[in-house]
Write a protein that binds this DNA or RNA. Structure first.
Lengths: 224, 224
DNA sequence: TAATTATTTTAGATTCGCCTAAAATATTAT
DNA sequence: ATAATATTTTAGGCGAATCTAAAATAATTA
């Protein structure tokens, strides 16, 4: 029953999916802000998606994706992350410049294309930002990761994901030479401004802001 | 000056480009038929494209692409054929099933993507149907080719292109095991129905219809 | 609790691409 | 050359997605 959806509808579904990851219940204004549109437009679209049983919607009460809606969202996320992986691994894009291109590619409809692309890429489990790629059934690997601010000092860890895809963040990470897979260790935490002194492999220690630390997720790695 | 164009506008530009390859001057009805739409819709779009200086249009007189329009068309054709090459060579699609997918992929806008894809594919000169791929400046290799119906008997030739991408044609070619690069020789021409007896390498001779012969283009190859 | 403020929905317009039906123009045949 | 036919354009309307402004509802504060 996966109806033919317009690109616009798909973008709404994806936005709702991402918002409910953190929020649970999603509101009209949140979606409007994420899609750079107005609340009235969101209401219009919600009525349409509700009629198609893609969202559970009750006037003024917020909304969530239905089971069908979630399946659709996962298939879009799958396509987005596979294309990002392709762009970085095969076409040599920088990991900070693939998001926008993948926003277009994720709407290519051919199912066969997605499966063949997945095979060509040898079934990657994570995209270049460290986010898990859903498989054809929507299942994805759960990666136990913690925020860098919760990592105890002196414990070796590896960057697994970043908190957003904003150009500003990615530009800063590039400058600091921090990427997915970078080994990191906390030297000292400063209580005054919650800044953190960190050290990367083969580099002198340096200090990063609380905001940056909060945007980094790591997994602890066994000290070899 | 390459304006932001909608997918619809791009499809009109591409249709006009292909029609004027054979026709020179293009008519409203031809475009309507190619795009499965109505003449009135074509007229609407022509006014818009004319206002953007993409076509040279005078009421009731037919029209052609402007220089700008031709550049845009070539960049779309370039994307289409590069993606087709990618799908066949890298993702193992059959050459008869890539056209529709490429119809979607050709509208992805990133210029950087096209150039990186071209490099990844090692700058192919022809797509899987034998059509030349324009380079970044719109230049493409001219391949001297003739229609199979114009090939004299007993001369060895090689299939270089097919006359259309219709599923029906491609299905038939698959069944007959004829593809781009296939070596072919004419054994006999039958004047009654213009059917042609041909022979491929390592195969018994068989007869093909006039319609099929007209859909095949070949280049003569030196008899080794 | 009642009033104020914030959020969401409705009402009505706009743009884009498409349509049908009718009018205008061009082409062809007598 | 004129009549019949074919093609193209105009006129007017429709659905999708958007917007602004106003009304309805919910949440917050006094």
């Amino acid at each position: 029953m996966i109806a033919n959806l317009s690109i616009t509808e798909e973008n709404y579904i994806k936005a709702i999916y991402h918002l409910q990851q953190t929020d649970g219940n999603v509101t009209t204004n949140e979606v409007a802000e994420m899609l750079h549109t107005k609340a009235a437009s969101v209401t219009d679209m919600l009525k349409k998606l509700n009629a198609k049983n893609i969202v559970n919607y009750a006037k003024y009460q917020g909304f969530t994706l239905s089971d069908d809606g979630r399946k659709i969202a996962l298939s879009i996320v799958r396509k987005h992350r596979l294309w990002e992986y392709f762009l970085v691994e095969k076409l040599q894009f920088g990991w900070d410049e693939v998001h926008e291109v993948a926003e277009e590619l994720e709407h290519i409809s051919s199912l066969k294309l997605v499966e063949k692309l997945d095979a060509f890429l040898e079934y990657p489990k994570f995209d270049p930002h460290g986010d898990p790629i859903p498989d054809v059934n929507g299942k994805m690997v759960y990666q136990p990761q913690i925020n860098l601010t919760d990592l105890p000092p002196s414990e070796l860890a590896e960057v697994t994901a970043v908190g957003s895809q904003s150009t500003e963040l990615l530009e800063l990470l590039k400058h600091k030479k921090i990427a997915i897979g970078t080994k990191i260790i906390i030297k000292k935490k400063f209580l005054f401004d919650n800044s953190i002194e960190i050290k990367l492999q083969n580099q002198a220690a340096f200090t990063i802001s609380q905001q940056l630390a909060q945007a980094l997720f790591v997994k602890k790695t066994p000290n070899e």
